[in-house]
Design a protein around this nucleic acid. Structure first.
Lengths: 236, 236
DNA sequence: ACAAAAGTGTTACGGGTACACCCATGC
DNA sequence: GCATGGGTGTACCCGTAACACTTTTGT
């Protein structure tokens, strides 16, 4: 929620008055799924953690608004972005009726350079199992999104958006384990992924790891597009 | 889209100014999936077919608004209702910026008694493969919803919301065929459904049909609730 | 040597698929 | 008798699950 105003609300000139966009930005770090939260400076949400919200300008679509927020907060331009849905309980935002449209995005952790917004004084990644108390209905929104991600990750090859260009099969497996909140069998996982013909062997190995070096892979973007179009089955 | 005004817009007193709720109402008739459309009396959508839209009152949630619209149009109170998402391109509604939140619902055809709204002069069911030209971005919305239904029907037992209390297995199969837009193998379908323990044999037969009378079934609502909670797999 | 992760092989089970086939009813 | 849909049986295939096992690298 864009909740950066005090009670005498000062809306910017060119934004819609009763609609906000909230963003859930996810990334993988050390095998853990993280979500980006901000602490607001002032207003009803002052000094509390929440999702990254903003108002919608009259000259941008909802999706463009969401994209703008993600880019301005993380610097990332190449990302997966999708809508979770609209949240519109009567009293979800205290004192005023605001509908929020929620988007979630998946970014590569290494590419993200966190930037303070005008209305926030902290931005940080949180392990999804260790999020603090959140403002308004943001916890509910986060939970809905985590559920949705489970659903989504089985039907579209979106997990890849969280990985660097070259990655190991274990890294990929960890994403599925984190999102599905389960442990997967390594041999079976490898075979399943390989059979999709989605990965290209880089013919390179990891460097300087304290164990046998793993092969690095990257995606075959063509196959990726086809899978998105014709379906994808990733049930475990 | 609630598009029932002329250019000198006359919004009711207690509604949000730039948000509407649009509804996709589905039902099964004679083995065909139908969607409910209305023809508007006046305004930008005058004399054209579109989804059933309305404004959102300040004292009702988005879902309550959607529910109100469905009930006032069809008289149905017992229904499946879910959000499809928000649509918010800049020029989706001509002349003014309006975000619409779209809900879809599944009703029993026999229970629906269509009622004219204040702003419409026709309400009718259309076969989903034979929809006329629609106003604004409503065709896009319909297509998105049909896609979403395919997705949904495999993971939650929602197909049943389209059936009368007592139904035959063929009726159920026709729903899946219509939504998934495919032909299914009868013997396999029967076994798959039966094994879910979702159906209770009514120990009754169809009456007066020109072939061997089929057994009538109804749902086991308890199992239904459990499947909703713990997952449901209906891949074909 | 040991830990840690990469990677391969094998087997059993169950579900999905594709049919063939018989049954009941009305015209 | 024939068309229409109801309903059962079966055999094959393939994906999944479970788990044992070998390989490579760093400390």
């Amino acid at each position: 929620m864009a909740a950066e105003m005090d009670k005498e609300e000062q809306l910017p000139e060119n934004v819609m008055p009763s609609i906000s966009v909230d963003n859930l930005i996810f990334a993988m770090q050390n095998g853990r799924l993280k979500v980006l939260l901000v602490k607001y400076k002032e207003g009803l949400a002052a000094d509390k953690w929440g999702l990254i919200g903003h108002w919608v300008q009259y000259d941008e679509s909802l999706e463009e608004a969401a994209h703008r927020v993600v880019t301005s907060t993380t610097g990332v331009v190449n990302l997966y972005l999708d809508q979770l849905g609209a949240f519109g309980k009567v009293n979800r935002y205290p004192g005023r009726r605001i509908i929020t449209v929620v988007y979630y995005s998946l970014v590569r952790f290494e590419e993200a350079e966190l930037q303070q917004g005008d209305n926030t004084h902290e931005v940080a990644w949180f392990d999804i199992r260790e999020v603090p108390e959140l403002i308004f209905d943001h916890k509910e929104i986060l939970n809905a999104c985590l559920e949705h991600l489970k659903y989504k990750v089985r039907h579209e090859p979106i997990g890849f958006s969280l990985l660097p260009e070259k990655f190991t099969l274990l890294q990929l497996q960890e994403i599925y384990e984190a999102i599905l909140d389960t442990k997967l069998d390594k041999p079976n996982f490898r075979r399943k992924i390989q059979k999709m013909n989605l990965l290209i062997n880089c013919k390179e190995k990891q460097q300087a790891v304290a164990h046998r070096a793993a092969t690095l892979y990257r995606f075959d973007i063509n196959v990726y597009e086809k899978l998105k179009e014709f379906g994808f089955n990733f049930e475990f």
